[in-house]
Write a protein that binds this DNA or RNA. Structure first.
Lengths: 238, 238
DNA sequence: CGTAGCCTTGAAGGTGATCAATGTTTGTGG
DNA sequence: CCACAAACATTGATCACCTTCAAGGCTACG
């Protein structure tokens, strides 16, 4: 078995993986094969950067497993995390339609992660014509824009409120009865880069919450022990 | 001439107006007629709200003239301005593809403005199939998301830097040699609602800049007298 | 002519930034 | 396997920027 047919075999498995995602449900394996022509699976380790902001955008892609953070470098030289991408998310599709597209953000793996990288050309030819697929992608982007707008509306609020709000948007299922686990491993620095505050501020607050047993952290995985309390903090005024 | 044929006449004029916009350049008047079936021109006065955040989204639209602000109400009861929309902008297209769409932001006229309101159904039937049109809309949204992300990356910076940056993104042409005029009339309150600070802070800073003759305001129209100075403020550290 | 929207200025106070120092964990190469 | 570096977490003291509160003035408009 030569190299390229091995790639094909691997891709077959990925296609069935794609088919489990809401985004591609309506599509057949054959259609997915067409959409993912010349696509490649990229395996990345923790902290590995797979897309560099500012570079010419030649590929877009789909997160298969793990998690990625989308970030920009601020003029002050710090990182600003714009979004946390989980499996099923589409990355960089947004800029594919532009004439000379440039990646607006960097994409970095958080823990071992897999990503399906697809040539830009596929978007401009095949993807573009699956109007239902494009609508689905638009919905993903709509929710991302919504999240950004909500964060903007909150940016005048207390750090407490913003942190509580961030944690709640990151939990997968929102069953308030029991503990909630945040499915993405997060360092305090990443939280502070997302909230646009210093690490120290985040640490002080989270230490306090840990002492009060509202949350707990093991190996960068945050568990919300008392969701109702966090919600209450989130909804308090100033 | 009855009411509905008068509407049709009015719409004809609007279609040629649309055709001058980059978004619709490639389309014929006939195609535009199809895309804008059952559309209605909405004329709004200063401070008139044409879309209310939270309501069920039944229409999307195109800004014809004037300007609109997109805003959310913060938990604290204040306004957060998310975007300033100028003629040629598409509004609320983003949520049209969702199952039970709800407007994520309110839309308010800034000065007398005209807006073409189009039924959601058009988007789901005709618009959706014009893939080039959808790509153009995606580009508009991409630039809007980019602006949000840039603002987020700046949110830790000084108010000076953020105000300078806002003013520069709002000017239409960026000829640094001469004075720059911001084409949208803006109150200090609107600027503060966009920067997520208090009015007082904006006033103090802008008064200072006015005294130093970096900017001047007449009737809510801001002119940047010394663009190079504003750029320098924008690029300073801290 | 009174109200509403907008602009302005001053004084006091708080939230988070900054700076500095130290501890802990993880990973890497000799 | 140890030594050392790099990433991450923590704590305290001081300070700056922006908020808050209060009071007043200006203009447009019904």
């Amino acid at each position: 078995m030569n190299e390229s047919s091995k790639n094909l075999q691997a891709l077959k498995g990925v296609l069935t993986e794609l088919k489990t995602m809401p985004l591609f449900q309506e599509l057949s394996i054959l259609q997915l094969e067409e959409l993912c022509a010349d696509a490649k699976v990229i395996v990345a380790n923790h902290r590995e950067r797979i897309i560099q902001s500012g570079e010419i955008a030649t590929h877009f892609g789909v997160v298969l497993s793990g998690a990625y953070k989308l970030s920009k470098t601020t003029p002050a030289g710090e990182d600003s995390i714009v979004y946390f991408s989980a499996p099923g998310d589409v990355i960089a599709a947004f800029v594919m339609a532009q004439k000379n597209p440039v990646y607006p953000v960097s994409v970095t793996a958080m823990g071992p992660s897999r990503y399906l990288s697809i040539p830009r050309n596929n978007y401009l030819t095949t993807w573009k014509n699956y109007s239902n697929l494009i609508m689905n992608i638009q919905n993903l982007l709509a929710s991302r824009m919504n999240q950004l707008q909500n964060q903007k509306a909150l940016s005048k609020a207390n750090l407490q409120i913003r942190l509580a709000s961030l944690l709640m948007t990151l939990v997968a299922e929102k069953n308030l009865e029991k503990e909630l686990i945040i499915p993405i491993p997060l360092t305090r620095k990443e939280i502070s880069d997302s909230l646009e505050v210093t690490v120290e501020s985040v640490i002080r607050l989270m230490s306090d919450w840990s002492k009060r047993e509202l949350i707990t952290t093991t190996d960068h995985v945050i568990t919300i022990l008392q969701p109702d309390q966090i919600i209450q903090i989130m909804n308090q005024d100033s």
